[in-house]
Nucleic acid binder design. Structure first.
Lengths: 174, 174
DNA sequence: ACCTATCGTTTGTCAGACAACCTATCTTCG
DNA sequence: CGAAGATAGGTTGTCTGACAAACGATAGGT
C-alpha cells in the first residue's frame, strides 16, 4: 500500500475525463471484432482467454483457472466442455485428487491458439487504429500492468470511500 | 486509412498480450468502484455519463445524446426520467420541433456532477493504483483518444477480416 | 467411520442489451 | 389544405451473460 496514497489527492482533473466511458468503448469494439473473428472457437473471446491460459501457463486445476481469469467457476464448466469437444483441450482426472480435473491443451489446441492470437493481435491493432503505432504498445502494456495489479489485489476494500450521497442537501433554490 | 495499414503487420506479439482480458479487468473494477460511489445518482455510472454530457456539452436532443454516448435510445428514456425526477436535469420541449426534447442541466445537476467527478477521479486513481502516478494520466489519455477514434469511425467495417475458421482442417493425428 | 471442507457441476434468478413496435410530429409533394 | 413517408421519443418483449445457491463426489482430519 505504498503506491502514493490516493486518499490525499483531490485531483481536479480536467472535466472531460470520461475514463470509464472510454474504456467501455474500446472494450466493446474489441469484443465485437474478436467475437467476429473467433466465431468458430467454442465460446469466442471467452474460449480464447481460457485456451490461452491453458496453453501458456501451467494451471493446476479448473478452480485455479477460474481464479486466474477472475471468472466464475460455473462458466468454466461448459466452456471447457465445448473446448474439449472441439478437440482443443482435454480434461484429465488429477491423479493426486480425484475431485480435481487437470486441463491440458492438445496439439490442435496449440495450433488453434497460435492462429487465434495472430488474428486477435491484428484486430487489436485495428481497434487501436486511432493511436499511432508506438502508443498502441504503450496502451496495451499499461492496461496489462494495471489489470495485473487489480487482479493481485482482489479484495475491493477501500478505506477512502466514505459512502455518502453525491447529491447536495436539496436546499437549492428550486 | 493512412494510419499504418494493419492488414500488413502479422505482429507476432509476445504471447501474454491478453489485452481484452486486461481491459475487462480494469473496466470491471472501475465499474464496481464507481457504482458503489454513485449509488445515490439515479443510474450510477450510466446516469453519470449522461449527466456529464448534458452538463459539459451542448447536445441538441435525446437522440444526439444517445449517439454521443453510443448507447441505445431506449436506455435514455428511463435514465433521463430518473435524473429529472432527482432534479438534476430537465426535459424541455424543443420550440423548433415538438417531437424533440431538449435536455438541460439544473444548478443542482451541475453541483452534483462536480461532486461526482471529484469522487470518480479519486476512484480512478485508486483503480489505477498499480501504475505509477504519471502513467495513469498517460493511460487515461490513450484510452480517451482510442475511444474517440473508435467512436468517430462508427461503422465496424474491416476489409482485412476474412472470416475463416481459426481451427485447423482437423487432419491432426487424433 | 464420521464430519467438514473443497472441486466440479447443475440449476435458478436477475439485470442489462437490443430489436420491434407504437404514437406524435415534421416534411414533402400534389 | 391533405395524404404519405420520415423522424423523435417511448414502450414492450426477448435474449444473453453474470452470479448465487444447491448438489454429488472426494479429500483430510479426528
Amino acid at each position: 500500500m505504498s503506491v502514493t496514497d490516493p486518499c490525499e489527492l483531490p485531483a481536479d482533473r480536467k472535466r472531460g475525463s470520461n475514463f470509464g466511458w472510454s474504456l467501455g468503448m474500446v472494450l466493446r469494439r474489441w469484443h465485437e471484432r474478436v467475437e467476429e473473428l473467433l466465431k468458430d472457437l467454442p465460446h469466442g473471446s471467452r474460449g480464447y482467454h481460457i485456451l490461452a491460459v491453458v496453453v501458456h501457463e501451467e494451471v493446476p486445476t479448473q478452480g485455479a483457472l477460474a481464479a486466474r481469469l477472475a471468472i466464475d467457476r460455473s462458466v468454466l464448466t461448459y466452456v471447457i466442455d465445448d473446448l474439449a469437444n472441439a478437440g482443443l483441450i482435454e480434461r484429465r482426472p488429477d491423479p493426486q485428487d480425484r475431485r480435481a480435473r487437470r486441463v491440458v491443451a492438445t496439439e490442435r489446441g496449440r495450433q488453434t491458439l497460435a492462429e487465434a492470437e495472430r488474428r486477435v493481435a491484428h484486430a487489436e491493432d485495428h481497434v487501436l487504429g486511432g493511436l499511432p503505432e508506438e502508443q498502441r504498445e504503450v496502451f496495451r502494456d499499461l492496461a496489462a500492468r494495471a489489470a495485473e495489479a487489480i487482479h493481485a489485489a482482489a479484495p475491493a476494500t477501500d478505506p477512502c470511500v466514505a459512502v455518502q450521497s453525491v447529491l447536495p442537501p436539496a436546499d437549492q433554490s428550486g
